[in-house]
Write a protein that binds this DNA or RNA. Structure first.
Length: 259
DNA sequence: ATGTCAATAATGTATTGA
């Protein structure tokens, strides 16, 4: 089962790019972030025509997440538990059942800039809630993965120019510490289980020719529970998608799971 | 700070968020 996470930066602006990608890359499951659409406005039909089940958790104007799956989705949960006052649509979970059940968590972690400030406080608190959710899922001992735009540069080697991110919410020590706390629950960062070294990126800013200069950062990740890590067969970044016609500023990251 | 982009409230362009 091939599963991709892809921050598409707007489903309406990206629909042609996204459909061409689906037809070519043929993911079994796609975890999408930044759909920037309410649920009623999400263009379900072209995805359903291609055999995908569509589950969305959107809001007006920004944020929003969705799961597309060729395997039926069960037990859909919208929103990250832990704060009933949080109105931002950044989290959706569902289970796919192959030979085994696999819980999929699709997340769009807050950017957090400018830091310090209320947006950064929200980011760190959101990461505490994500860790609590991971603890609950671990206790259930069901294989799960958490995939999405984490807005976290885990290490200096995950940025082409780490010096320019020193005071950024994506790379501040407190941000990276929260990410490490998540990993330290016993989760496997899929890409780093398969690839070492610098030069691997999943995001290039639209500004200042970042793509042409390969000035990228690696901020889209999969974290796998121990049971899910045993099922992982491969993980890779689809760099070329960033150079497609009318691209997102992110590129897909993939895991292949022996479900 | 920015060689950019997308959505919004509104019909031309500033604001927000990234």
């Amino acid at each position: 089962m091939k599963i991709a996470t892809f921050n598409i930066n707007g489903v309406k602006a990206r629909i042609e790019t996204l459909l061409a990608w689906l037809d070519e890359a043929q993911p079994d499951v796609a975890l999408l972030q930044e759909i920037k659409s309410v649920d009623e406005g999400f263009p379900r039909e072209p995805f359903e025509e291609r055999g995908y089940s569509v589950e969305t958790h959107g809001q007006k104007g920004f944020n929003g997440v969705a799961i597309l799956s060729k395997v039926p989705l069960e037990d859909v949960m919208r929103g990250l538990p832990g704060d009933d006052t949080d109105e931002q649509a950044r989290y959706i979970e569902a289970t796919v059942v192959g030979e085994r059940a696999l819980r999929l968590c699709c997340l769009y972690l807050p950017n957090g800039n400018p830091a310090p400030g209320p947006k950064y406080d929200y980011k760190l608190a959101w990461m505490d809630r994500l860790r609590a959710r991971a603890q609950d899922l671990l206790a259930a001992e069901e294989p799960f993965l958490m995939g999405g735009d984490y807005n976290i540069i885990p290490q200096a080697e995950d940025a082409a120019k780490p010096e320019s991110w020193q005071t950024d919410a994506l790379h501040l020590p407190a941000s990276r510490e929260k990410f490490r706390l998540l990993e330290n629950l016993g989760l496997t960062e899929a890409f780093r289980a398969r690839h070492a070294g610098p030069g691997h990126y999943s995001f290039w800013d639209y500004q200042a020719g970042a793509w042409d200069r390969n000035n990228g950062i690696r901020i889209d990740h999969f974290l796998l529970s121990p049971e899910a890590a045993d099922m992982m067969e491969d993980c890779w970044i689809e760099t070329a998608q960033r150079g497609s016609t009318k691209p997102s500023d992110h590129t897909p990251v993939w895991v292949e799971m022996g479900v």
